[in-house]
Design a protein around this nucleic acid. Structure first.
Length: 808
RNA sequence: GGGCGGUUAGCUCAGUUGGGAGAGCACCAGCUCGACAAGCUGGGGGUCACUGGUUCGAGCCCAGUACCGCCCACCA
């Protein structure tokens, strides 16, 4: 064995070997009929691995490797999302470099070009997952634009259509003027912006022009689309105004003053100009009051022909014209600087234009019901619990879903129109209109929201809508793990679509993993320059160390990235490597044999078994941070500092029994570490004698009752060592074994003790006094649980013993 | 504005039915003997954010306050 552990070569070699030998494949090493299934959240096909992916990959891999070792038929499904708007954005930028727009080359060529680009440049993340050591079944990689996946998406659409949940309507949507498409609320990000809040008076139509209702606005251009002014019904200031008419500036249209309970009397003047065509709240108010919905801003974000002589102007220009018109007439009452949050497109950060347009929708009330029930009955559980409550609340208030996008990259809606406007909905292109028999059919040009296809991921990857063997075997799955912000976009939708198509929830547990923040506590983002490429620590310290470090910090909702945690992982890998060398250098010709006879042998096996139980408990609760602690102390404290030191003399004597047991103990240790640090453990495993199989497929240790009672076997020696090192007093030990271990580990002849015996006695006296105080407190003895009191008695005994040993 | 989380050693953070305040790193001292680009042993260092409450007993439970952060959100 190389005296130095060098992760870079070792890790790449095992990753290739495991994949080539089929250890990653579904069912590899299966010894039981039970299945264990996780599908990876499909990353954007254009994306690169970020720290969140790396954490999520690490923890899913722990679960997958752990279950594979338990002999389950394990499938970890990889793949990519076509990421409609995001990918189209990338290709449009490429085109722009050549001075072209998508319209210059046309839809077909654009889609062609997207595929070409993906062929050459896309799909990098699965390679990065491999480098992290993630044991996904890469042979089953799927893409949401694969032919059969497309068929699944269209089949699902038709199913929803047949259910009567799909409808088309003119409603207010978030319009991105750059991408020229509608986007969902969930794709809108709010950013703080500085604006001017204008207070403008709308004079009464039947007055002298000096009286009226004043409104507040930051978007004066939308005044052109005003159809009313609304006030709160209980607002005394405006009680007499309701029912009268006011004149809209510039357009000089007369519009009514109406009352609506959604108005906040506290804001601005307490009166709202109602622009149903360009504001979500106004839209709702307008629909309920049956007001017209004029649209004065076009799809390009500029004023349109409905804006009259302002047609073609930008909103800024039009707004300025309207304001100066009002200013000349003394209608502008106030201009205040105003900082507020404004919706922007999450991809291009253009200011979102709310406008009314004709879109396809999916009604959500009915589909959500079974999902809400499933969550309430805990057929699916979100972890942590707080996210479970959030997920239910999100489903309960899900608005109808705008599923159409005016993009070219994606799943084109399976709807064909005849010249009379009848819609025929089919998976395969129809030849005649279902209603009138016309053969002149034209397909809907819109594509589906990207999340519509991701919602089918757990079963479309298994061949649905066909009744495949895979689907029967691997659906429903077990776990899904993802980021918090994606609960509504993805998790909840997989749950309701799974119930709709297959009648079962797609998984039983959802892990909402930590958000990895930058070292300074801010979010990691490209624009802030706070992002850290996970490939960097992997190259520097190794994948094992990076996995360990990420898991260690994953305890709370938001965690700061920490190089320290990764360095700790690196230390652990090196320590493991070196202790393995110690044993293997002295194990020539010896085979592993689990025949523990001595105190320290039974003790280490008991410690390992206790750690096994702790790991199982932690991982089944999805507590990954806790498990790293267990592993670190098992290796450093128990295995190296006590067990290895205790058996060293026997190793050097080439004791076959001691060495054989050491090899067996090392095997168990490696097995427990493998899910977190697969590479270094497999590398050591491959050096063990008579080792044909791979650790990745080795059985997870069963509980071993033989050692259950031996956890405390070394207690007396450890206690004596502690006293000796602190005070220089050597305690009398009871057995030869104890004396032998004390001599081997503590090596009293080499310890120059400058510990303070008097200070130690003083410390122990205080402890004794404290324990005696508690045990003589009647209320404590009466109220405390029996085991607590017993523990306190034991402590008192021990302190007295130690005190006696010191002659105090 | 709403939801959630955080506040414990110089730093990063554990602390699972309320019962001796912990780890890693950093720092100091000693050892370094046939695994250890190091290791081992020991040590210093903390009003567990603040204020009340419940309890024999609170880092942990309850109420409130203050900061920090994340997510969500149509306040014109």
């Amino acid at each position: 064995m190389d005296p130095l552990y060098k992760p870079e070569g070792v890790e790449a070699r095992w990753q290739e070997t495991w994949e080539a030998e089929g250890s990653y494949a579904a069912g590899a090493g299966a010894r039981r009929d039970e299945t264990y299934v996780i599908c990876v959240p499909p990353p954007n096909v254009t994306g690169e691995l970020h720290m969140g992916h790396a954490l999520n990959g690490s923890l899913q891999d722990v679960l997958v490797r752990w279950h594979r070792m338990q002999g389950h038929d394990t499938l970890w499904q990889p793949g990519y999302d076509h990421a409609g708007i995001s990918t189209q954005n990338v290709i449009e930028k490429e085109l722009a470099k050549e001075g072209l727009s998508r319209h210059d080359i046309g839809r077909e060529a654009f889609v062609e070009r997207t595929w070409d680009w993906l062929e050459k440049t896309g799909r990098t993340i699965m390679g990065q997952f491999r480098r992290l050591g993630c044991s996904l079944d890469y042979s089953r990689e799927r893409f949401t634009m694969d032919d059969d996946y497309v068929r699944a998406v269209l089949t699902f659409f038709v199913r929803l259509w047949d259910r009567g949940w799909i409808y088309r309507d003119n409603r207010i949507v978030n319009w991105c003027p750059f991408h020229q498409t509608a986007i969902s609320d969930l794709e809108v990000v709010h950013e703080e912006m500085d604006d001017t809040l204008l207070t403008i008076r709308y004079p009464f139509a039947d007055g002298d022009g000096r009286e009226g209702v004043s409104i507040a606005t930051v978007r004066p251009a939308t005044i052109l689309g005003d159809v009313a002014v609304a006030v709160h019904p209980g607002d005394d200031r405006y009680a007499s105004a309701v029912g009268r008419e006011v004149v809209v500036p510039y357009t000089e249209r007369r519009v009514p003053v109406i009352a609506d309970a959604r108005i906040d009397p506290e804001f601005g003047t307490g009166a709202l100009k109602v622009t149903p065509g360009h504001d979500p709240l106004d839209f709702d108010i307008g629909r309920d009051a049956r007001l017209p919905e004029p649209i004065v801003i076009g799809l390009d974000g500029r004023m349109n022909e409905a804006a009259g002589d302002l047609d073609g102007l930008t909103q800024e220009e039009a707004g300025a014209r309207v304001v100066s018109w009002a200013d000349e007439r003394g209608l502008v009452e106030k201009r205040e600087p105003y900082r507020h949050s404004v919706g922007t497109c999450e991809r291009c950060h253009s200011r979102i234009e709310p406008l009314v347009s004709l879109q396809w929708w999916c009604a959500m009330e009915e589909p959500a019901k079974p999902a809400i029930a499933a969550l309430r009955e805990r057929r699916v559980r979100y972890h942590p619990e707080s996210q479970h409550r959030f997920a239910i609340a999100s489903l309960e208030e899900t608005p109808d879903w705008c599923i159409s996008r005016q993009l070219w990259w994606g799943h084109q809606l399976p709807i064909w129109y005849c010249p009379d406007g009848h819609a025929t909905v089919r998976v395969d292109p129809p030849t005649v209109c279902a209603e009138c028999g016309s053969t002149e059919l034209e397909r809907e040009s819109d594509v589906l929201d990207t999340w519509f296809s991701s919602a089918l991921w757990p079963y479309a990857t298994l061949g649905w809508p066909d009744e495949t063997e895979e689907l029967a075997r691997y659906y429903p799955g077990n776990v899904n793990s993802t980021a918090r912000e994606i609960i509504r976009l993805w998790e909840n939708r997989m749950i309701w679509t799974g119930l709709e198509t297959l009648g079962e929830v797609p998984f039983t547990d959802v892990i909402i993993h930590s958000t990895v923040l930058a070292v300074d506590g801010r979010r990691m983002s490209k624009s802030l320059g706070t992002g850290i490429d996970p490939m960097q620590p992997i190259e520097e310290h190794g994948a094992d160390a990076t996995r360990y470090g990420l898991l260690k910090i994953s305890s709370t909702q938001d965690v700061r990235f920490s190089y320290g945690a990764i360095e700790e992982g690196r230390k652990l890998a090196i320590k493991l490597w070196n202790v393995a060398r110690l044993i293997l250098q002295n194990a020539e010709g010896v085979t592993p044999a689990l025949v523990p006879r001595d105190v320290e042998e039974r003790w280490i096996l008991a410690r390992i078994d206790a750690a096994r139980a702790e790991l199982e408990d932690a991982w089944s609760r999805f507590d990954f941070a806790g498990s790293t602690d267990t592993l670190y102390h098992l290796v450093f404290d128990d295995f190296c500092d006590w067990y290895a030191e205790a058996i060293k003399p026997r190793l050097y004597e080439r004791s076959v029994e001691a060495t054989g047991t050491a090899l067996a103990a090392l095997e168990r240790l490696l097995t427990l570490l493998h899910p977190v640090m697969p590479h270094v453990t497999e590398e050591i495993w491959s050096e063990l004698p008579r080792r044909e199989s791979r650790l990745i497929l080795a059985p997870w240790p069963e509980p071993d009752a033989r050692f259950a009672d031996d956890v405390g076997a070394l207690d007396r020696v450890q206690e004596a060592a502690h006293i000796f090192r602190r005070s220089g007093v050597q305690v009398e030990l009871g057995s030869d074994d104890e004396r032998r271990i004390f001599a081997a580990v503590v090596r009293p002849e080499r310890v120059r003790v400058d510990g303070n015996r008097d200070a130690e006695i003083e410390r122990l006296r205080k402890e004794v006094a404290r324990a005696e105080g508690m045990l003589t407190n009647e209320r404590f003895v009466a109220n405390a649980p029996a085991n607590v009191v017993a523990a306190e008695r034991e402590k008192l005994e021990r302190y007295r013993r130690e005190l006696a040993a010191l002659g105090g």
